[in-house]
Amino acid sequence: MLLRLFFLLVLCPSTLIGQQMNSPLDGRKYFCPGQIWTDLNGNPINAHGGGIIYVDGTYYWYGEHKLLGKSEREGADGGVHCYSSTDLYNWQDEGIILSVDYQNPQSDIALGCILERPKVIYNKRTKLYVMYFKLYLPGRGYDTGYVGVATGTNPSGPFQYSHKFLGAGSSKGSGDFCMFQDEDGNVYHLTVRKPDKAFCIGRLQDDCLYPEGTYKVLSDIPLHTEAPAMVRKDGIYYMIGSGSSGWAPNAARSFSTQNLWKGYKDLGNPCIGVNTYNQLGAEKTFGAQISFILPVKQRPGFYIAMFDIWNPERASDGLYVWLPLRIENGKLIVEWKDQWSF
Protein backbone atom coordinates (compact mmCIF):
# COMPACT_ATOMS: atom_id res chain seq x y z
CA MET A 1 0.00 0.00 0.00
CA LEU A 2 2.83 2.44 0.81
CA LEU A 3 4.46 1.70 -2.54
CA ARG A 4 1.19 2.46 -4.38
CA LEU A 5 0.81 5.75 -2.51
CA PHE A 6 4.37 6.66 -3.52
CA PHE A 7 3.64 6.06 -7.20
CA LEU A 8 0.39 8.00 -6.99
CA LEU A 9 2.03 11.03 -5.37
CA VAL A 10 5.17 11.10 -7.48
CA LEU A 11 3.89 10.02 -10.90
CA CYS A 12 0.21 10.96 -10.76
CA PRO A 13 -0.16 13.60 -8.02
CA SER A 14 -3.61 14.81 -9.12
CA THR A 15 -5.02 11.44 -8.03
CA LEU A 16 -4.50 12.30 -4.38
CA ILE A 17 -4.41 16.08 -4.24
CA GLY A 18 -8.20 16.23 -4.15
CA GLN A 19 -11.11 18.23 -5.42
CA GLN A 20 -9.21 21.31 -6.51
CA MET A 21 -7.06 19.37 -8.97
CA ASN A 22 -10.10 17.52 -10.27
CA SER A 23 -12.27 20.60 -10.73
CA PRO A 24 -13.41 21.70 -14.20
CA LEU A 25 -11.25 24.85 -13.88
CA ASP A 26 -8.03 23.10 -12.81
CA GLY A 27 -8.40 19.49 -13.82
CA ARG A 28 -6.30 16.54 -14.74
CA LYS A 29 -4.26 17.04 -17.90
CA TYR A 30 -2.74 13.60 -18.39
CA PHE A 31 -3.49 9.88 -18.19
CA CYS A 32 -1.96 7.61 -15.54
CA PRO A 33 -2.43 4.02 -16.78
CA GLY A 34 -2.89 1.34 -14.16
CA GLN A 35 -3.57 3.79 -11.32
CA ILE A 36 -6.73 4.85 -9.48
CA TRP A 37 -8.76 7.24 -11.66
CA THR A 38 -11.26 9.50 -9.91
CA ASP A 39 -14.21 11.42 -11.34
CA LEU A 40 -14.90 15.10 -10.72
CA ASN A 41 -16.47 14.21 -7.37
CA GLY A 42 -13.27 12.51 -6.24
CA ASN A 43 -14.73 8.99 -6.43
CA PRO A 44 -13.03 6.12 -8.30
CA ILE A 45 -14.55 5.72 -11.77
CA ASN A 46 -16.74 2.60 -11.89
CA ALA A 47 -17.10 1.80 -15.61
CA HIS A 48 -15.34 -1.48 -16.36
CA GLY A 49 -15.11 -3.21 -19.74
CA GLY A 50 -16.47 -0.10 -21.32
CA GLY A 51 -16.84 1.80 -24.55
CA ILE A 52 -17.20 5.45 -25.56
CA ILE A 53 -19.25 7.48 -28.01
CA TYR A 54 -18.84 11.14 -28.98
CA VAL A 55 -21.90 13.37 -29.25
CA ASP A 56 -21.90 17.13 -29.89
CA GLY A 57 -18.53 17.82 -28.30
CA THR A 58 -18.90 15.42 -25.37
CA TYR A 59 -17.56 11.91 -24.81
CA TYR A 60 -19.78 9.41 -22.98
CA TRP A 61 -18.04 6.50 -21.29
CA TYR A 62 -20.22 3.45 -20.53
CA GLY A 63 -18.99 0.59 -18.39
CA GLU A 64 -19.94 -2.13 -15.94
CA HIS A 65 -20.99 -0.77 -12.57
CA LYS A 66 -19.35 -3.19 -10.14
CA LEU A 67 -20.91 -3.50 -6.69
CA LEU A 68 -18.50 -2.39 -3.98
CA GLY A 69 -16.72 -5.21 -2.18
CA LYS A 70 -18.31 -7.95 -4.30
CA SER A 71 -16.38 -10.65 -6.09
CA GLU A 72 -17.47 -12.00 -9.46
CA ARG A 73 -18.62 -15.19 -7.73
CA GLU A 74 -20.97 -13.17 -5.52
CA GLY A 75 -22.71 -11.35 -8.37
CA ALA A 76 -20.74 -8.16 -8.83
CA ASP A 77 -22.76 -6.48 -11.58
CA GLY A 78 -25.05 -3.60 -10.70
CA GLY A 79 -25.80 -2.30 -14.19
CA VAL A 80 -24.22 0.21 -16.55
CA HIS A 81 -22.58 3.40 -15.31
CA CYS A 82 -22.07 6.47 -17.50
CA TYR A 83 -19.56 9.32 -17.28
CA SER A 84 -19.18 12.35 -19.55
CA SER A 85 -16.19 14.47 -20.51
CA THR A 86 -15.15 17.09 -23.03
CA ASP A 87 -11.39 16.40 -22.72
CA LEU A 88 -11.13 12.64 -21.85
CA TYR A 89 -9.11 13.39 -18.71
CA ASN A 90 -11.84 14.69 -16.39
CA TRP A 91 -15.12 12.81 -16.06
CA GLN A 92 -18.50 13.87 -14.70
CA ASP A 93 -20.57 11.13 -13.08
CA GLU A 94 -23.87 10.71 -14.96
CA GLY A 95 -25.00 7.88 -12.69
CA ILE A 96 -26.21 4.35 -13.34
CA ILE A 97 -28.18 4.65 -16.56
CA LEU A 98 -29.26 1.00 -16.74
CA SER A 99 -29.70 -0.74 -13.41
CA VAL A 100 -30.16 -4.40 -12.72
CA ASP A 101 -33.78 -5.13 -11.79
CA TYR A 102 -34.06 -5.28 -7.99
CA GLN A 103 -37.86 -5.72 -8.05
CA ASN A 104 -38.58 -8.52 -10.51
CA PRO A 105 -36.61 -11.75 -9.96
CA GLN A 106 -37.95 -13.07 -13.30
CA SER A 107 -36.34 -10.25 -15.29
CA ASP A 108 -33.50 -11.08 -17.68
CA ILE A 109 -31.46 -8.45 -15.86
CA ALA A 110 -32.53 -9.28 -12.31
CA LEU A 111 -29.95 -8.93 -9.55
CA GLY A 112 -27.56 -11.84 -9.98
CA CYS A 113 -27.34 -11.62 -13.75
CA ILE A 114 -23.94 -11.19 -15.37
CA LEU A 115 -23.94 -7.96 -17.38
CA GLU A 116 -20.61 -7.17 -19.02
CA ARG A 117 -18.74 -5.05 -21.61
CA PRO A 118 -21.50 -2.52 -22.59
CA LYS A 119 -21.18 -0.67 -25.91
CA VAL A 120 -23.44 2.06 -27.33
CA ILE A 121 -24.09 3.23 -30.90
CA TYR A 122 -26.46 5.83 -32.35
CA ASN A 123 -29.00 4.80 -34.99
CA LYS A 124 -29.78 7.78 -37.23
CA ARG A 125 -32.90 6.16 -38.67
CA THR A 126 -34.64 5.44 -35.38
CA LYS A 127 -32.94 8.33 -33.53
CA LEU A 128 -32.20 5.95 -30.66
CA TYR A 129 -29.04 5.22 -28.75
CA VAL A 130 -28.71 1.45 -28.65
CA MET A 131 -26.76 -0.29 -25.90
CA TYR A 132 -25.43 -3.84 -26.18
CA PHE A 133 -23.95 -5.93 -23.40
CA LYS A 134 -22.91 -9.51 -22.78
CA LEU A 135 -25.71 -11.05 -20.72
CA TYR A 136 -25.84 -14.26 -18.71
CA LEU A 137 -29.19 -14.86 -17.04
CA PRO A 138 -29.49 -14.92 -13.24
CA GLY A 139 -28.50 -18.19 -11.61
CA ARG A 140 -27.28 -19.83 -14.83
CA GLY A 141 -23.59 -19.00 -14.73
CA TYR A 142 -21.62 -18.69 -17.97
CA ASP A 143 -23.38 -21.49 -19.87
CA THR A 144 -25.32 -19.47 -22.48
CA GLY A 145 -24.19 -16.02 -23.53
CA TYR A 146 -26.84 -13.63 -24.81
CA VAL A 147 -26.51 -10.13 -26.21
CA GLY A 148 -28.65 -7.81 -24.12
CA VAL A 149 -30.15 -4.75 -25.80
CA ALA A 150 -31.34 -1.50 -24.21
CA THR A 151 -32.34 1.79 -25.80
CA GLY A 152 -32.49 5.46 -24.87
CA THR A 153 -33.14 8.84 -26.44
CA ASN A 154 -30.25 10.62 -24.70
CA PRO A 155 -26.61 9.52 -24.53
CA SER A 156 -26.54 10.20 -20.79
CA GLY A 157 -29.56 7.97 -20.25
CA PRO A 158 -31.69 6.59 -18.89
CA PHE A 159 -31.73 3.40 -20.98
CA GLN A 160 -34.55 0.87 -20.89
CA TYR A 161 -33.91 -2.84 -21.26
CA SER A 162 -35.56 -4.11 -24.45
CA HIS A 163 -34.67 -7.73 -25.19
CA LYS A 164 -31.90 -10.27 -25.70
CA PHE A 165 -30.73 -12.35 -28.65
CA LEU A 166 -28.38 -15.26 -29.26
CA GLY A 167 -25.53 -14.23 -31.52
CA ALA A 168 -23.05 -16.12 -33.70
CA GLY A 169 -25.65 -18.63 -34.86
CA SER A 170 -25.18 -20.84 -31.81
CA SER A 171 -27.70 -22.13 -29.27
CA LYS A 172 -25.09 -21.29 -26.64
CA GLY A 173 -24.62 -17.79 -27.98
CA SER A 174 -21.47 -15.73 -27.87
CA GLY A 175 -18.86 -14.46 -25.45
CA ASP A 176 -16.84 -11.24 -25.41
CA PHE A 177 -17.74 -9.09 -28.42
CA CYS A 178 -17.57 -5.68 -30.00
CA MET A 179 -20.24 -3.80 -31.92
CA PHE A 180 -18.43 -1.94 -34.69
CA GLN A 181 -20.28 0.85 -36.47
CA ASP A 182 -18.76 1.45 -39.89
CA GLU A 183 -18.62 4.79 -41.70
CA ASP A 184 -21.83 3.98 -43.61
CA GLY A 185 -23.74 3.44 -40.36
CA ASN A 186 -23.92 -0.36 -40.59
CA VAL A 187 -23.25 -2.16 -37.31
CA TYR A 188 -21.37 -5.45 -37.06
CA HIS A 189 -21.27 -7.94 -34.22
CA LEU A 190 -17.77 -9.46 -33.94
CA THR A 191 -17.56 -12.15 -31.31
CA VAL A 192 -16.20 -15.44 -30.07
CA ARG A 193 -18.78 -18.22 -30.48
CA LYS A 194 -19.75 -20.57 -27.68
CA PRO A 195 -18.85 -23.34 -27.09
CA ASP A 196 -16.28 -23.98 -29.87
CA LYS A 197 -14.49 -20.59 -29.53
CA ALA A 198 -14.59 -19.83 -33.27
CA PHE A 199 -14.50 -16.12 -34.14
CA CYS A 200 -17.56 -14.86 -36.05
CA ILE A 201 -19.05 -11.78 -37.65
CA GLY A 202 -22.66 -10.82 -38.33
CA ARG A 203 -24.40 -7.63 -39.42
CA LEU A 204 -27.32 -6.12 -37.56
CA GLN A 205 -30.62 -5.06 -39.08
CA ASP A 206 -31.17 -1.41 -40.04
CA ASP A 207 -32.75 -0.68 -36.65
CA CYS A 208 -29.69 -2.26 -34.97
CA LEU A 209 -31.86 -4.33 -32.61
CA TYR A 210 -31.34 -7.84 -34.01
CA PRO A 211 -28.91 -9.68 -36.33
CA GLU A 212 -29.76 -9.37 -40.01
CA GLY A 213 -29.00 -12.96 -40.93
CA THR A 214 -26.45 -15.70 -40.58
CA TYR A 215 -23.01 -15.25 -39.09
CA LYS A 216 -19.75 -16.12 -40.83
CA VAL A 217 -16.76 -17.78 -39.17
CA LEU A 218 -13.59 -15.76 -39.75
CA SER A 219 -11.17 -18.62 -40.27
CA ASP A 220 -8.16 -16.28 -40.52
CA ILE A 221 -8.56 -15.40 -36.84
CA PRO A 222 -7.33 -18.08 -34.42
CA LEU A 223 -9.71 -19.97 -32.13
CA HIS A 224 -10.09 -18.59 -28.60
CA THR A 225 -9.78 -14.96 -29.78
CA GLU A 226 -12.09 -12.82 -27.67
CA ALA A 227 -12.62 -9.25 -26.39
CA PRO A 228 -12.27 -7.68 -29.87
CA ALA A 229 -11.93 -3.93 -30.39
CA MET A 230 -11.88 -2.45 -33.88
CA VAL A 231 -11.09 0.80 -35.67
CA ARG A 232 -10.97 1.84 -39.34
CA LYS A 233 -8.24 4.05 -40.78
CA ASP A 234 -7.66 4.89 -44.47
CA GLY A 235 -9.86 2.03 -45.64
CA ILE A 236 -8.14 -0.59 -43.46
CA TYR A 237 -9.83 -2.25 -40.49
CA TYR A 238 -7.60 -2.91 -37.49
CA MET A 239 -8.57 -5.15 -34.59
CA ILE A 240 -7.03 -5.97 -31.22
CA GLY A 241 -8.21 -8.98 -29.23
CA SER A 242 -7.07 -11.26 -26.45
CA GLY A 243 -6.73 -14.95 -25.86
CA SER A 244 -9.19 -16.81 -23.66
CA SER A 245 -7.92 -17.44 -20.13
CA GLY A 246 -10.77 -16.39 -17.86
CA TRP A 247 -9.92 -13.42 -15.67
CA ALA A 248 -6.17 -14.05 -15.97
CA PRO A 249 -4.31 -11.81 -18.46
CA ASN A 250 -2.70 -13.19 -21.60
CA ALA A 251 -0.92 -11.84 -24.68
CA ALA A 252 -2.87 -9.46 -26.90
CA ARG A 253 -3.22 -10.21 -30.60
CA SER A 254 -3.93 -7.88 -33.53
CA PHE A 255 -5.16 -8.15 -37.10
CA SER A 256 -5.91 -6.05 -40.17
CA THR A 257 -8.13 -6.46 -43.22
CA GLN A 258 -9.62 -4.50 -46.12
CA ASN A 259 -12.87 -6.48 -45.89
CA LEU A 260 -14.67 -7.16 -42.62
CA TRP A 261 -15.86 -10.54 -43.91
CA LYS A 262 -12.51 -12.07 -44.92
CA GLY A 263 -8.78 -11.71 -45.45
CA TYR A 264 -7.54 -10.94 -41.95
CA LYS A 265 -3.76 -10.60 -41.58
CA ASP A 266 -2.16 -11.55 -38.25
CA LEU A 267 -0.12 -8.58 -36.99
CA GLY A 268 1.08 -10.22 -33.77
CA ASN A 269 1.14 -8.76 -30.28
CA PRO A 270 0.91 -4.94 -30.46
CA CYS A 271 2.14 -4.32 -26.91
CA ILE A 272 5.58 -3.00 -25.97
CA GLY A 273 7.06 -2.35 -22.53
CA VAL A 274 6.30 -3.24 -18.91
CA ASN A 275 3.64 -2.01 -16.49
CA THR A 276 5.64 -0.18 -13.81
CA TYR A 277 3.23 -1.10 -11.04
CA ASN A 278 2.72 -4.85 -11.48
CA GLN A 279 5.83 -5.64 -13.57
CA LEU A 280 3.76 -7.38 -16.26
CA GLY A 281 4.81 -6.87 -19.86
CA ALA A 282 3.60 -7.60 -23.36
CA GLU A 283 3.21 -11.34 -22.74
CA LYS A 284 0.45 -10.47 -20.22
CA THR A 285 -0.81 -7.25 -21.88
CA PHE A 286 0.39 -5.26 -18.85
CA GLY A 287 -1.96 -7.36 -16.71
CA ALA A 288 -4.95 -6.09 -18.69
CA GLN A 289 -7.42 -6.94 -21.46
CA ILE A 290 -8.54 -4.75 -24.37
CA SER A 291 -12.02 -3.23 -24.14
CA PHE A 292 -12.27 -0.53 -26.82
CA ILE A 293 -10.35 1.54 -29.36
CA LEU A 294 -11.26 5.22 -29.20
CA PRO A 295 -10.69 7.70 -32.06
CA VAL A 296 -9.87 11.08 -30.47
CA LYS A 297 -11.97 13.78 -32.13
CA GLN A 298 -9.63 16.60 -31.09
CA ARG A 299 -6.79 14.89 -32.96
CA PRO A 300 -7.89 13.17 -36.17
CA GLY A 301 -5.90 10.01 -36.77
CA PHE A 302 -5.03 9.61 -33.08
CA TYR A 303 -6.38 6.60 -31.18
CA ILE A 304 -6.49 5.40 -27.58
CA ALA A 305 -6.45 1.71 -26.72
CA MET A 306 -8.60 1.16 -23.62
CA PHE A 307 -7.75 -1.83 -21.43
CA ASP A 308 -9.06 -3.13 -18.09
CA ILE A 309 -7.08 -4.70 -15.28
CA TRP A 310 -9.67 -7.04 -13.81
CA ASN A 311 -9.94 -7.80 -10.10
CA PRO A 312 -12.37 -10.74 -9.82
CA GLU A 313 -12.04 -10.92 -6.02
CA ARG A 314 -13.02 -7.25 -5.57
CA ALA A 315 -14.50 -6.34 -8.94
CA SER A 316 -14.99 -2.61 -8.29
CA ASP A 317 -11.25 -2.24 -7.59
CA GLY A 318 -10.34 -3.06 -11.19
CA LEU A 319 -8.10 -0.46 -12.85
CA TYR A 320 -8.00 1.15 -16.29
CA VAL A 321 -5.09 1.25 -18.72
CA TRP A 322 -5.48 3.82 -21.49
CA LEU A 323 -2.52 4.03 -23.86
CA PRO A 324 -1.87 5.69 -27.24
CA LEU A 325 -2.34 3.38 -30.21
CA ARG A 326 0.02 3.95 -33.14
CA ILE A 327 -0.33 2.55 -36.64
CA GLU A 328 3.10 2.31 -38.27
CA ASN A 329 3.86 0.48 -41.52
CA GLY A 330 0.62 -1.46 -41.24
CA LYS A 331 1.33 -2.58 -37.66
CA LEU A 332 -0.37 -1.67 -34.41
CA ILE A 333 1.80 -0.50 -31.52
CA VAL A 334 0.67 0.03 -27.93
CA GLU A 335 3.59 1.13 -25.77
CA TRP A 336 3.47 1.37 -21.98
CA LYS A 337 3.70 4.87 -20.49
CA ASP A 338 3.48 5.77 -16.81
CA GLN A 339 1.99 9.16 -17.67
CA TRP A 340 1.03 10.76 -20.95
CA SER A 341 -1.22 13.25 -22.73
CA PHE A 342 -2.22 13.95 -26.31
Rank of each mutant, 00 (worst) to 15 (best):
G51P: 03
D56L: 00
Q20N: 12
W37S: 09
G57D: 02
T38M: 11
D39E: 06
D26E: 13
S14L: 08
H48G: 07
I36V: 10
S14K: 10
T15M: 00
Q20S: 10
I53M: 03
G34R: 14
A47I: 14
W37G: 05
D26F: 12
D39M: 03
G57P: 03
Q19S: 15
I52F: 10
F31R: 02
N22H: 11
Y30A: 14
I17E: 10
G42H: 07
S14G: 03
N22S: 06
F31L: 07
G18K: 04
N46F: 10
L40G: 13
N43L: 08
I53A: 14
P33H: 00
N41V: 09
K29F: 00
T15E: 11
S23F: 01
R28S: 11
L40K: 11
D39R: 03
G42L: 00
G18C: 04
C32M: 08
V55N: 08
L40M: 15
Q19H: 15
V55D: 08
H48D: 07
I52G: 00
T15C: 02
S23M: 00
I53L: 09
N41C: 05
Y54D: 07
N43M: 08
D39P: 00
Y54F: 13
L25E: 12
N22M: 12
K29C: 05
G18W: 03
M21R: 05
Y30M: 10
G49C: 02
G18R: 01
G42I: 14
P24N: 09
R28V: 12
Q19W: 06
G27N: 02
G27M: 02
L25T: 09
K29E: 09
G18T: 04
Q19K: 14
T15A: 08
P44A: 10
Q35L: 11
Q19M: 07
I45S: 05
W37D: 04
A47R: 03
N22A: 08
G27C: 03
N43A: 08
L40I: 14
I53F: 01
I52A: 04
D26H: 09
M21F: 15
C32G: 05
Y30C: 07
Y30G: 13
Y54S: 04
D56W: 01
I17V: 11
H48E: 11
L16T: 13
S14W: 14
C32V: 12
N43I: 13
Q35Y: 05
Q35M: 15
Q19N: 09
I36G: 08
L25K: 12
P44C: 12
D39V: 10
I45V: 13
S23T: 04
P44W: 04
G18Q: 00
D26N: 09
Y54C: 05
W37N: 01
G50M: 09
P33L: 05
V55H: 09
R28P: 00
G49Y: 02
T38G: 09
Q19P: 01
G51S: 13
P44G: 12
Q20C: 05
L25H: 13
I52C: 06
W37T: 14
G49E: 07
I52K: 01
S14A: 15
N41D: 14
L40N: 03
T15D: 06
S14P: 13
I17L: 11
G27R: 00
G34L: 07
G57L: 03
N46K: 11
G49W: 02
D56P: 02
P33T: 06
F31V: 08
L25R: 15
D26Y: 14
P24E: 01
N46G: 11
D26V: 15
G50H: 03
